[in-house]
């Protein structure tokens, strides 16, 4: 049995498998994940991995099933997650690398929503001296492009596909995200966190322009950006409560941008 401890957000996850090939695949799938230097941390979630499940990805439909032993199973064609009620003891069986990545996003999103800790948002996120700035929008709006254009000596990319938000009554904080699409920045040695200063809904345009969005409008437009699968009524209420807190604390903007880094003059001014 092999195991490693990793940080996601401010949570320690203990990843284990009977197969060293599975552990290698995990490392390849999440090259930017932060590893704990020692086993002194008490893990929030223990995840056991196994390969050889199902068939390649077909669609995002996830079935949910309560078992006789009190666990819950979430099954897609290419992965199955079996977890206790609190998502603390988890077994994942997966088909391939894509399935492993999606299963982990699914699990982490479940855990942070159910614990009221925060949300996983389909977006990129860039940090500067003022904190974190999130970029989201429709598919193809330029989330990864905006992040790639932003990288400089004074700015860093902490997410290019899924931003991790911790939502508290007085502050929204963002963390380095291992859930990447294209931009695999080097893994930091220590977990960092930044206050979320702004949220931008992206639109590609000829000229740079930024317009404030009302909180109510922002809440509605962020709803379909939350990574979550088959929410129950209570999950939906929890997600809306967390989004409401977010739009209350963080200003939102429509950002019209062309493919150069000068849109930062609007953000930093």
């Amino acid at each position: 049995m092999e195991s490693i401890d990793i940080f996601i957000g401010e949570h320690v996850l203990r990843i284990s498998s009977a197969s060293s090939a599975v552990m290698s695949l995990f490392s390849r799938t999440f090259p930017t994940v932060i590893r704990c230097g020692s086993f002194d941390f008490e893990p929030a979630i223990a995840v056991h991995l196994d390969e050889g499940y199902g068939s390649p990805f077909v669609d995002y439909n996830v079935g949910k099933q309560q078992t006789d032993t009190g666990t819950v199973r979430y099954a897609r064609t290419d992965y199955i997650i079996e977890t206790d009620e609190d998502c603390k003891q988890v077994a994942i069986k997966f088909h391939d690398e894509l399935a492993l990545k999606h299963a982990f996003m699914h699990l982490y999103s479940l855990y942070i929503v159910r614990s009221g800790w925060g949300l996983l948002i389909h977006s990129s996120c860039v940090t500067d001296n003022c904190g974190g700035h999130m970029f989201t929008g429709r598919s193809g709006a330029g989330k990864s492009t905006a992040a790639a254009l932003s990288e400089s000596e004074s700015r860093g990319i902490i997410a290019d596909e899924a931003t991790i938000l911790r939502i508290r009554p007085d502050e929204v904080t963002v963390f380095h995200s291992p859930f990447r699409s294209e931009i695999q920045t080097a893994a930091p040695l220590e977990p960092g966190q930044w206050r979320l200063s702004s949220i931008h809904l992206l639109h590609q345009a000829e000229q740079h322009r930024r317009m404030p969005i009302a909180r109510s409008e922002g809440l509605i437009r962020l709803m379909d950006k939350v990574f979550f699968w088959n929410p129950s009524t209570d999950d939906t209420k929890a997600i809306i409560g967390l989004l409401r807190q977010t739009v209350h604390l963080v200003p939102l903007y429509d950002l019209y941008f062309r493919k150069d880094p000068y849109f930062w003059e609007l953000i930093s001014s």
Binding site: A214, R215, S216, L219, I220, M223, T233, T236, K237, R244
Partner: peptide, 24 residues
């Protein structure tokens, strides 16, 4: 039952958690 009103900046929105909708 289950529908919840959300007040934001003086605006009222109604959440239907079963239908995953928000109505302003």
């Amino acid at each position: 039952p289950g529908c919840e009103a959300i007040e934001l900046d003086g605006e009222t929105m109604i959440l239907n958690p079963d239908g995953l909708t928000i109505t302003r």
